[in-house]
Amino acid sequence: MSNTTTTNLDELIEQERRRASERITKLKRAVAAEQRRIDGKVIDLLRDQSPDLYDRLCQEASEALVEEKTKRSRRAKKAASSAGAVNDGTASQTVDPKHAEVAPWNG
């Protein structure tokens, strides 16, 4: 095959890959949308058929979300304090002016 034929063939293959990728993405979106509709219907049925269970599960879900948020917050604060505690080679000392001693600098 000549170089031109190979180049054209490569372009056609790439076009088909893009089309296939777009179709797959479209199908995945459709499946996700259908699952959301099913989930919504399940929630409606649960609420209607077992209101006590629905209320209990709502409470558990709410508590779980609060707990996850708290854990993320703790991790973020810990990461921020760790990043602030990194030693960059400079000394950070607080000096009480009443007790500060003056010493010659030997720089």
Rank of each mutant, 00 (worst) to 15 (best):
N87I: 02
R17M: 06
P51W: 00
V95Q: 03
Q49W: 00
R74M: 07
R19D: 10
D88N: 12
A83Y: 07
L45H: 04
S81F: 04
V86A: 09
Y54S: 02
P51C: 00
L53Y: 00
C58I: 11
I24W: 05
D96W: 03
I13H: 04
E14T: 15
L57V: 07
S62H: 08
R17L: 09
N87P: 00
E67L: 05
K78R: 14
P51V: 00
K69H: 09
I13G: 00
R23Q: 13
A103S: 05
T6Q: 12
R29S: 09
A20Y: 07
A85P: 02
T4W: 05
I24K: 14
K69G: 06
T90M: 06
A64V: 12
T4Y: 09
D39L: 06
A83Q: 13
T6C: 05
L9T: 13
N8G: 06
L27I: 11
C58A: 06
T5F: 05
A61D: 15
A32S: 13
R74D: 09
S73D: 10
A79S: 03
D88W: 02
R75V: 09
R56T: 00
G89L: 04
K98Y: 11
D44P: 00
L53F: 00
G40R: 12
A30P: 00
E68A: 08
P51E: 01
K98T: 15
S82Y: 01
K26Q: 10
T5E: 13
V95S: 03
Q93S: 05
L12K: 12
A61Y: 10
L53V: 02
K77T: 13
A100V: 06
A103L: 09
M1L: 07
V95H: 08
P104Q: 05
L27P: 01
D96C: 03
K69N: 10
M1H: 05
V95P: 12
L65N: 11
L46M: 10
E11I: 15
A85Q: 05
V31S: 07
I43S: 08
N106Q: 12
W105R: 12
R37Q: 15
V42F: 04
E68P: 10
V102S: 03
S50I: 03
T94I: 09
A85M: 02
K77L: 06
R19C: 03
L45P: 02
N3S: 08
L65T: 14
Q93P: 01
K77N: 04
L53G: 00
L9H: 11
A79D: 03
A80F: 01
R72Q: 10
C58M: 08
S62V: 02
S21R: 14
G40Y: 03
S92Q: 14
E22V: 12
K78D: 12
V102M: 03
A79P: 00
R72T: 02
S62D: 09
N87K: 07
E60D: 14
E60L: 14
A32V: 05
R23E: 13
L53N: 01
S50Q: 14
K41Y: 06
Q59K: 13
S73M: 08
G107I: 10
Y54I: 01
T4K: 12
D44G: 01
R18P: 01
E22W: 06
D48M: 02
T6L: 10
N106L: 08
Y54T: 02
D44E: 15
T90V: 15
S21D: 13
D39R: 11
D96F: 04
A83H: 12
Q35Y: 08
C58N: 09
D10P: 00
G84R: 13
S50D: 13
I38F: 04
R72S: 07
L12G: 04
H99E: 04
A80E: 03
A100G: 03
